[in-house]
Design a protein around this nucleic acid. Structure first.
Lengths: 209, 209
DNA sequence: GAGGATAATGACAGCCGCTGACAATTGACA
DNA sequence: TGTCAATTGTCAGCGGCTGTCATTATCCTC
């Protein structure tokens, strides 16, 4: 099914991601040069840029994959579910799959530490937010499709998705900036945040949680 | 009150912002070099980088100012208002002030066109999102202060602010990517989106708007 | 299994964003 | 007016990124 050429490319790409992650995590993103990454994999700098459009991309490669998985999960849900419910359920059910997909490329612990690097590196944080926005737009299209609304005219798909992804990013950030990070902890924090979406918007916060 | 030196700096900064905006709007962000901006104001490239940390900063200078105004508006509101209400009211009441503040630096129409450039330029969009995130964090602190909650423990300030700014960014984007842009239109679109925050989260979208 | 078509890589040159260092100029203030 | 501090220009240089072209490696067919 896959020729030698194809497999070799895959291996090079994975090696670049792995080497980059290790360098970023140990010595920081800004202080790591593309030359160092390329050298670690024994390819030329030019080759690196044939695999990744820029330095950010290799740092966000795994991250982007997880987000893409989430989107695909949403698309696969039954149409009977209400929009918000659909997003929430997908979140709950994609978690294990994503964990496996990550470990196919890089050790889980390395990825988790990379998440922290992303949060504290302005350039990466910015790129991460932009990438999330792209998926957000695709999500709007999907929610509109599911509900049969025109995404250009009815603001509700936009509003729902914007609020939801805003909260998810916030949760991810809150989790990533803590000391101990684990997939389970991420899941817990994210769920907690999404659950608070309704209460937080209510007029009165008097009642204790 | 201000010495000659001070005034000169102010003038140089404004001139750089203005020249940059004009160049960005007419020939695009990526194709405009810092050298061109510096040359238009007749300063050295090195001087440009003494006024702005990077090329993005000059492009987002006015934008950032408006966001900062909004934040200050929130801080000035009476404590009696509920969190969401406070954000909504601030939005409604800062609009004219912001318009004036913009025109003190650059023609309004130029700024509006610059907003569109930001939306279609990946690097600027990313930086814009990151800057918004910084303000988001400050907003969380402020909302927590107003409600007397611990922003580290209670997720509601985070969740509310994340949802709110997410929707605002989405509204801004929806507005900026249209053909005709005006301040009034922006206000209308933003208000509409924020108003839909509650309905969009409800389980059932059956009822027509 | 030899051949040519095609794809991946390396080497090189060069642009642009950005920074450090130092000297020259300009405004502030006694 | 002279001294001090702030602002600026110049220059050298690094790192991200791209175009180009020759070289090498895989693929496919006969």
């Amino acid at each position: 099914m896959t020729g030698l050429r194809e497999r070799k490319k895959q291996r090079t790409r994975d090696a670049l991601v792995l080497a980059a992650h290790q360098l970023f995590v140990t010595q920081g993103y800004d202080t790591t040069t593309v030359d160092q990454i390329a050298e670690a994999v024994e390819v030329s700098q030019r080759t690196f840029f044939r695999y990744f459009a820029n330095k950010e991309e290799v740092a966000l490669f795994v991250q982007d994959m997880t987000v893409r998985r989430f989107f695909e999960g949403v698309c696969a849900r039954p149409l009977s579910e209400a929009p918000l419910e659909c997003l929430r359920r997908t979140l709950d059910e994609t978690w294990e799959d994503v964990g496996e997909a990550i470990e196919a490329i890089t050790p889980l612990e390395l990825y988790l530490r990379m998440c922290q690097v992303i949060e504290v590196t302005p350039a990466l944080l910015a790129a991460h937010l932009r990438h999330s926005l792209l998926v957000e737009q695709k999500l709007v299209q999907e929610i509109a499709r599911r509900t049969g609304l025109d995404p250009e005219r009815d603001p509700r798909p936009r509003v729902l998705v914007a609020a939801f992804t805003g909260v998810m990013l916030s949760a991810g950030r809150h989790w990533g900036l803590r000391d101990g990070v684990s997939l389970e902890e991420a899941r817990r924090v994210t769920r907690e945040h999404v659950e608070q979406l309704g209460p937080a918007l209510s007029a009165d916060w008097r009642q204790d949680r």
